[in-house]
Design a protein around this nucleic acid. Structure first.
Lengths: 259, 259
DNA sequence: AAGTGGTCTAGACCACCTC
DNA sequence: AGGTGGTCTAGACCACTTG
């Protein structure tokens, strides 16, 4: 019945007893199941290497159909937490997912890190865009765009200089809006559904102006990131060109294979 | 903006006539359907903004069940090519996916770009690891690991200095192996299933040694990338710490939202 | 009100892995 | 040879969006 591998110190975690589903809840059944398995993995009740019960058994024990169970486990596979092997079973391979560098703003990232971000607004007005920004937004250099320039601080130190260009009419933030909240937060609040972003990460040495803004010596190495953000209709909602102090900031990400 | 919203001006692309499925093929039906829709999107037959037929109709026209069609479209949603909206339909939002920065080696990336990569092997032997590498691999500093050090060139110019540490016994490449093929290629050929990698991207200025190796002036900005790679069992198969010429190389990636 | 995707069921056969 | 995931069918009801 209970498939226990030769890991003798298998934790006592009986899915039939630990997972409960509520058919009246508006939360989809597959999601309820996935969440509870994920929690068991994160808590260590299902350690790395542990095998899940097979899909048929799991379905029977929970009173659900196999496709529903498959959908639940499938979402964990997508997250990279477990792997399925035909004929062999489903095993836990990670107990947490590092999800940095998702579609979130620097402000959100720093807030999550409890780094007390603050923002100084240098520019917040409609202007004609520089050639590079016009090209990225698919506009002409005569069109007006919202030009934003900010310096982001965390823990009392400057971290990055952020320059953004947005199509006119999308947003009209006050300086206070920009001080308190990240650009992505403001866009979401304005009803924009962020869908995807193309980023290019590079490096170069600081100009005198950047060095002064970021409290670095001239010639210090800076990380650069340029980004084009699309909404759910495929329209371009933002072009940004940012520089980060390499001594204070790195990009962390995890990649997953397709095999 | 080429948004087609009315069926009347729908492009001439009839899925019933353009998509064919072969029930005898070993290729899954959902995959056959997904590939052909993806091709239609890439070719422009289904432009950005176009709406797909609804799932029931598509299923009926192709003689397949709705879950199979859903699985096909679902894979396109995962790739970010189309979006589904309940009550509204499924629309094309992108016509290509930039898939750089996936789980592939620099060698593969450069080969794909037709950049004629070549490699100079500086170190290829078993050694005790530096503290940082030992910690990343979960080994002690007394354990032997395979130490690799290479300089990658493309288009006749140096691009990056690559330093890798692998658990002993996993691989025993000759210098020729390393010259001709990327590390990930060698690992796959050795039967290792690459599953995920954690990367940290940063920047710093070049040391004299790096400057000489990479043909850059001392003090030039370099991109740095550290990576820990796991196989499908969760075991660590590689730790790498690499430096790239910022004047010749950037990291491109696209991020997708969860909404 | 009609159309469409979101979820779910209860089966089935096959391919692959392990024993 | 038996167990397991991979794929597929033919339905069903619901929630949301749009005209």
């Amino acid at each position: 019945m209970t498939a226990v591998r030769h890991r003798s110190q298998e934790p006592q975690w009986d899915p039939a007893k630990q997972i409960s589903v509520d058919h009246r809840s508006p939360v989809p059944l597959y999601f309820q199941v996935a969440s509870q398995i994920e929690e068991a993995i994160a808590s260590g009740a299902l350690p790395v290497g542990a095998r899940l019960d097979n899909e048929i058994e799991l379905a029977g024990n929970l009173g659900l159909s196999r496709p529903t169970i498959r959908q639940a486990i499938g979402s964990l596979v997508d997250k990279g937490l477990v792997v399925r092997k035909r004929g062999a079973g489903t095993q836990v391979v990670f107990n947490h997912v590092k999800r940095s560098l998702q579609l979130s703003s620097l402000h959100d990232d720093l807030t999550a890190l409890d780094a007390a971000p603050s923002t100084r607004v240098l520019v917040n007005e409609l202007r004609t865009p520089p050639p590079e920004a016009a090209r990225a937004l698919g506009l002409s250099e005569q069109d007006q765009v919202l030009h934003l320039e900010r310096v982001r601080h965390a823990r009392g130190e400057p971290i990055a200089r952020l320059r953004n260009y947005l199509p006119a009419g999308l947003l009209a933030p006050t300086d206070e809006d920009l001080t308190d909240r990240g650009l992505y937060q403001l866009l979401r609040a304005a009803g924009v559904h962020l869908h995807a972003a193309q980023q290019t990460i590079g490096a170069r040495t600081a100009t005198d102006e950047e060095a002064a803004l970021l409290d670095e010596p001239t010639g210090a190495a800076l990380l650069t990131m340029q980004r084009i953000t699309h909404d759910h209709t495929g329209a371009i909602v933002e072009f940004g060109t940012h520089t980060y102090r390499a001594s204070r900031y790195t990009f962390d990400l995890t990649l997953r294979g397709d095999t």
